[in-house]
């Protein structure tokens, strides 16, 4: 079977599975979030009521958009404090069999923000930094709650379209509780068991030593007590030569974190190698399950949207736009990687795909996955806000690496993260109908709601916040010694690494071009700020739009109303998304992956 056919079949299988699941799952999400009685609400009613009673929540209380936003912000601030304190106090807390010391203050700040914002950027190495209690009670809990927060915001925005002359958009506490209790927890439990069946580990054992067949000599980088690499006067890592026949195998409650890592589009690996690690992602089947899990809820939410607004065609239109963007860019990544490196080809190295070799660019990829499954994973993880990786994006070809970078820069909406994908594409839909309205000279409408100056101001804040943070952050990093210190690959690739880091942080993705040494005070602080503002400023703007739309009356559909479910609208939506992405990022991309591509191909 040719490599291209393998990629096409794998992609088609994954997409067919998630699209088949979109209808039942999307319907289920609409039911539980709107409190329409179904089997889950009946089974969980007592537990749900108990949670409300213990937390002092009045489930019948409706909130204005600003109260909803303030509740959300306070909830996430509290989550950030808990994750920070768990890291700083972990040496005195239980479930730390390796007796790992406290995480440094700057890294703890960065990680707390990363997990609260659904980014899961990891400047640290999990197996040598985080105690089991920190991983499970801090990071995994935030994996659930940050995904639930995103879903709550999406449902609140959809209510903005469905409600008429309403001052409220729902109850944040109820939305977070229901999305965690009825969606994320049961799905994660199922996936965790399935992953354990494939060999993903789940235990609280201390790390195990295995004796290897051969002796191994390697240069081991020295670290300080906080786990940061020691550098010499020139800034190079200090290493010591070590010969050993002992390999330490890290253990831990991995499967339970792995499942929500994918389903919640979080992406924070239990281990530093993330889903490339055999204890996180051991087989081709576990890899298939993980890719499908990343895409599952975001695609299903388009159906939820259709159900809630009473016109499923509206959801299908958004799904179609997401699918087209995803399929095209995933194919570009695969073609770039399978095409291989011209530098190697010019030296007579055979990089063609045959029955006995994968060909193409296998640097940074696991042989058990190959190029097709690695390229598809890279596209899935950056088309959503996941950020898990099963290959090293830094080792991709320039145009292969361009794909994850650009998918994030489009706003992670093809299909996007849990909740974030649907609310981001809805903001672009609002912008699209506004542009169309300007062209035909008619007041723009979307789903019966007039789009006016206030909504456009809020949409502009939403759309401009992230590029501003990303580009300013990148500029600051390349101009300051703190930012330059982390670059091991000066030139176009080093610039790509910095741009990727801030793009990943600003869009709450969390994947990395791993060549950048980012566990420094500069990057921990700057990326932390970008992650927080890149998450919560757009969320506040989204909730403000929800409140504004909910307060409006619904205007009747007339012959002059632009249909928002056909091919014309899908094209308009895709055009708007690509145009905004290109306008924001082309100059930066030209300095990074594009120039690197031409340098590489021009040299041969």
């Amino acid at each position: 079977m040719s490599a291209t056919l393998k990629f096409a079949l794998l992609g088609a299988l994954v997409l067919a599975l998630v699209i088949l699941c979109a209808k039942p799952l999307g319907h289920y999400i609409a039911d539980v979030m709107e409190g329409r009685p179904n089997f889950a609400l009946r089974w969980g009613a007592r537990l749900e009521r108990w949670i409300y009673r213990v937390c002092g929540i009045d489930a019948r209380e409706e909130m204005s958009w600003s109260r909803y936003a303030i509740g959300l912000l306070v909830f996430n601030l509290a989550g950030g404090l808990v994750v920070y304190l768990l890291q700083r106090l972990q040496q005195w807390l239980p479930f730390n069999p390796q007796q790992l010391p406290a995480v440094s203050a700057d890294s703890a700040f960065n990680t707390a923000v990363a997990f609260v914002t659904n980014t899961d950027w990891q400047g640290y190495s999990g197996e040598s930094t985080m105690a089991y209690l920190t991983q499970a009670a801090g990071l995994t809990v935030q994996n659930f709650l940050s995904a639930a927060t995103g879903l709550a915001v999406a449902i609140a925005l959809i209510r903005g379209f469905t409600r008429r002359s309403s001052a409220t958009i729902g109850n944040f506490w109820v939305d977070v509780t229901r999305s965690s209790l009825y969606l994320l927890l049961p799905l994660s439990a199922l996936l965790a068991v399935a992953l354990m069946g494939q060999g993903v580990i789940q235990n609280l054992h201390s790390y195990r030593d295995a004796t290897t067949i051969e002796k191994l000599t390697f240069d081991n980088p020295k670290s300080d007590s906080a786990g940061k690499p020691l550098l010499d006067a020139k800034g190079n890592p200090i290493t010591e030569s070590v010969t050993t026949q002992i390999q330490t195998l890290p253990m831990g409650p991995v499967a339970s974190q792995e499942a929500i890592k994918e389903l919640g589009t979080n992406g924070g690996g239990f281990f530093n190698a993330n889903s490339a690690h055999p204890f996180e992602n051991p087989t081709a089947l576990s890899n298939f399950m993980e890719i499908a899990a990343i895409l599952l809820i975001p695609f299903a939410l388009t159906y939820t949207f259709g159900v809630m607004v009473g016109d499923r065609r509206q959801g299908f239109a958004l799904m179609a736009a997401m699918l087209i963007l995803f399929a095209v860019l995933a194919a570009v990544a695969f073609v770039s990687e399978q095409g291989g490196n011209p530098s190697l080809a010019s030296q007579g190295i055979d990089a063609t795909s045959t029955a006995s070799q994968s060909g193409g660019n296998m640097e940074g990829k696991e042989t058990r996955f190959g190029i097709a499954a690695s390229a598809l994973f890279a596209a899935a993880t950056t088309a959503t806000s996941c950020g898990a990786v099963n290959s090293m994006h830094d080792s991709m070809m320039p145009m292969g690496g361009f794909v994850p970078l650009f998918l994030m820069q489009l706003g992670e909406l093809a299909p996007g993260g849990v909740g974030t994908g649907i609310y981001t594409i809805l903001i672009f839909a609002i912008l699209g109908v506004f542009i169309a309205g300007l062209m035909i000279g008619r007041t723009p409408e979307y789903l019966g709601k007039k789009i006016q100056a206030r909504e456009m101001k809020l949409a502009s804040i939403f759309i401009l916040t992230t590029p501003t943070l990303v580009l300013l952050g990148t500029a600051l990093a390349v101009m300051t010694s703190g930012g330059q210190a982390g670059v091991f690959n000066p030139g176009a690739h080093g610039f790509s690494e910095i741009l990727y880091a801030f793009t990943s942080a600003g869009n709450n993705n969390g994947s990395a071009f791993a060549g950048l040494s980012a566990n420094t005070v500069f990057y921990n602080v700057s990326l932390g700020i970008v992650m927080w503002l890149g998450r919560f400023w757009p969320i506040v703007a989204t909730l403000a739009i929800a409140g504004s739309l909910a307060a409006k009356k619904r205007v009747p559909v007339t012959e002059g109303t632009m249909p928002t479910h056909g091919a014309l609208f899908i094209s308009l939506l895709i055009g708007t998304i690509v145009l905004i992405g290109v306008l924001n990022y082309v100059p930066a991309l030209a300095l990074g992956p594009v120039v690197e591509h031409f340098m590489l191909s021009g040299a041969h």
Partner: peptide, 30 residues
């Protein structure tokens, strides 16, 4: 050092809180 990062976290919260308050007062400009 902890106080520095806790204050920074609080500052980020207040920056988001402040945006919510500002947007509540944002008119439609018409």
């Amino acid at each position: 050092m902890d106080i520095v990062y806790l204050v920074l976290l609080l500052g980020l919260f207040l920056a988001s809180f402040g945006l919510a308050l500002a947007l509540e007062r944002l008119g439609d400009g018409s």
